[in-house]
């Protein structure tokens, strides 16, 4: 069985630097200046799963991203981890997309790569965190999908038994390929890149496609293809007491316990 696997990866700001991210009040876009970019953590789990499947069966693993030119860095890292091919969907027309506008570019991108059996995604990104892009790609590709995937096992050729997480417990689902699976953190521990991997990656090519090459209507992607839009940012005001206590730790703690008692917050 030879499988063609496509892994969707997104370049995101490193969450360790989230406190430096700010929103431009005028353009309402996120300013990421000086913030290092990484591969979305769960997308690394998705790639790891693809690579493990490749190690068990014969498979080809492609990675794809929609993003600005610098998203090439994320693809390079994925190639160094062991992906075979990489595709960058890059065009000004793709900018400022919501999840629908994103899926509208990624689905044709995946089709452009050629035949695919399995599409892997992260369950959600750290910067937008919607978890919507995976199911939406699956809809456009007309393939079955599952999210919150924590275990994948091959049942028969081209049929998988998948464990999918729930609030309390899990669901067992039988899925026929081709399918899209969005994975959770529990599924595996992503490998690190090795020096060998980095050298091997230098041989691999990154193919880039713009809107025209993908054959998509610019009105279906990016900001024009996004039905949701931000109309305003505002400061939320809290009605809390907002009493701030300074002073020596002893005094502060004493005063705090008094207040907590006063408010009846310690009664069980």
């Amino acid at each position: 069985m030879a499988l063609n696997i496509v892994v969707c990866i997104k370049q995101v700001p490193d969450p360790e630097h989230f406190s430096k991210v700010s929103l431009d009040p005028v353009t309402k876009t996120i300013s990421r200046e000086g913030i290092p970019a990484i591969i979305n953590p769960l997308d690394k789990n998705a790639l790891e799963e693809g690579l493990r499947i490749k190690e068990k069966f014969s498979a080809k693993v492609a990675v794809i991203t929609m993003g600005p030119p610098q998203a090439r860095r994320a693809l390079e890292e994925a190639l160094a981890m062991g992906a075979d091919e990489a595709f960058l969907l890059c065009d000004k027309a793709f900018a400022a997309a919501d999840t629908l506008g994103t899926a509208c570019a990624l689905a044709p991108g995946i089709q452009k790569i050629g035949h695919f059996d399995l599409v892997l995604c992260g369950n959600e990104t750290v910067d937008s965190g919607t978890g919507q892009v995976g199911p939406q790609i699956a809809q456009f590709l007309n393939i079955p999908y599952l999210t919150k995937v924590k275990e994948i096992a091959f049942d028969e050729e081209r049929t998988l038994i998948v464990k999918r997480g729930l609030e309390q417990g899990y669901m067992r689902v039988r899925v026929k390929l081709p399918a899209l699976l969005a994975v959770n953190k529990e599924i595996n521990k992503p490998r690190l890149t090795t020096a060998f991997g980095i050298i091997a990656a230098a041989e691999k090519e990154i193919k880039a496609f713009d809107c025209r090459e993908l054959g998509v209507d610019p009105n279906d992607v990016g900001i024009s293809g996004s039905p949701t839009r931000v109309v305003e940012t505002f400061q939320r005001v809290s009605q809390r007491r907002r009493e701030v206590i300074y002073g020596s730790p002893e005094e502060a703690v004493k005063k705090t316990t008094e207040r907590l008692k006063e408010f009846g917050a310690l009664v069980q």
Binding site: D98, L100, S128, P135, Q139, T147, P227
Partner: peptide
């Protein structure tokens, strides 16, 4: 969450998460 996302794509309408 996944169901809403899929239906939104099928209907080509917007969906705001969380």
């Amino acid at each position: 969450g996944e169901l809403a996302a899929w239906v939104a794509a099928r209907l080509r309408t917007g969906l705001t998460a969380h």
